[in-house]
Amino acid sequence: MTVEAVTPAWMHQQITAAEYESWSAEQCAGIEIVDGMVVVSPSASKRHNRLARILANALDAAGGPDWNADTDFDVRLQDVPLTNRRPDVVVYRADTIDVIPTRPEHVLLVVEVVSPGSETTDRIVKVDQYAKAGIVFYWRVEQTATGVPLIYTYILDPATRTYRTGEMHTGVVKASAPFATEIDLAEG
Rank of each mutant, 00 (worst) to 15 (best):
I151G: 10
V172Y: 08
K46Q: 13
G64R: 02
A133K: 02
S22I: 00
W10I: 14
E167C: 08
A177N: 08
R50V: 12
V136S: 14
T7R: 07
T160H: 09
T16M: 09
T170M: 10
A61I: 13
V173K: 02
S22A: 13
I183W: 07
M168R: 09
G36N: 01
I31M: 05
T144G: 02
W23E: 01
V39I: 13
S118N: 12
A17G: 10
Y92A: 14
V40Q: 11
I33L: 11
S43W: 01
A69G: 06
S43V: 12
T102A: 08
A177Q: 15
P101L: 03
D66R: 15
H48W: 07
V141Q: 04
R161C: 14
I183F: 07
T165D: 15
D122M: 07
Y92S: 13
E167P: 02
A145Y: 00
K46P: 05
V113E: 03
T160W: 01
H12L: 06
I155M: 11
I155R: 15
I97P: 00
E119N: 07
Y152L: 14
A44E: 05
W23V: 04
V114K: 04
P104K: 04
R164I: 05
R123W: 08
A180S: 14
R93W: 01
S176C: 04
P149V: 01
D74T: 09
D35T: 03
L59Y: 06
N57L: 14
S24H: 09
M37P: 04
D70G: 15
D122S: 03
G30Y: 10
D70R: 14
Y130A: 03
A56N: 07
Q143D: 11
V107Q: 04
P42D: 05
A94Q: 08
E112Q: 05
P101Y: 05
